[in-house]
Amino acid sequence: MNNAIAPVIAELDQTIIGKSAQNRLAVCCLLSHGHLLIEDLPGMGKTTLSHALATLFGLDYARIQFTSDLLPADMLGANIFDVQKQQFTFHPGPIFSQVVLADEINRASPKTQSALLEAMEEQQVSLDGQTHELPEPFFVIATQNPLHQAGTYPLPESQLDRFLMRITLGYPDWQAEKQMLQNDNDEPLKSMITAQQLSDWQGQIETIHVADAVLEYILRLVSFSRESGEYANPLSPRASRAILRASKAWAWMENRDYVIPEDVQHVFAAVAEHRLRSPGSDSDLSFQLSESLLAAVDPIAA
């Protein structure tokens, strides 16, 4: 584990107990400039995780609770006429934060969903012909209720694709939940690193070496998903780029300056599962499409 990131993850593990793998993936996602989608039942710690991430990385944080009547302007902000200055001034919405928690994103109407997704993709907001840059780093954590719950508009495939990773938290095990109940302290988290440090780390990740063998492994994975005919939604080129970015961040977290196939395997399920699975299908999460894909492709050059 990289000495720089280890304390952050240790602190995160103290907050979200017993979810070490998910914590690491969430950090990895933040480090690789990606947006994170957390899908789970209410009360599983989605909000806690995103809040803890924002605080630990010293980022400013806003939370948008998505409802079916939320309008794009509520989120992006609006031009409001200033009577004193006799002109329109822009009042930025909650989206102008470094970490945005889009809570229960699938309860909002598709119009609002796409406004958020557009901002995520463009890193900017256009309103009445004016372009407003979003802050750097810009990190969206969206949470999503399982699709079978009432009052949800499922995100279409094209928009799911915008999230680098999707993770699920799941119920904690007996020990973890007991521990959580025992030290139920409300001691607030303190920021451990600065935005500058985060940016430096992201710069280091850019320089991680990726050998041809790893690139070809990723290519074999995606092309297998396209050619085998077993996957309804084969992986797109955007997906292969996402896998590469996340693998590099993972390698950095493992304190290596090169990527090995294990890095790809560690991030693969989080990066690929929501892209492979069609949202209309029954979301039987016990069967992981990405695992079957990993089991079919040999990481060593064929």
């Binding site: 063998a213 090995i260 196939p261 294990e262 790809v264 395997q265 990993l294 089991a295 079919a296 492709v297 040999d298 990481p299 060593i300 050059a301």
Partner: peptide
């Protein structure tokens, strides 16, 4: 990769394990 694979096959045969799609580490 071929060289590595040969060594893997030696080990696999000796200890009755399978690499399947595990990475080297």
């Amino acid at each position: 990769a071929n060289e590595y694979r040969k060594s893997v096959e030696l080990v696999e045969a000796s200890f009755a394990i399978k690499r399947a799609t595990l990475g080297p580490e």
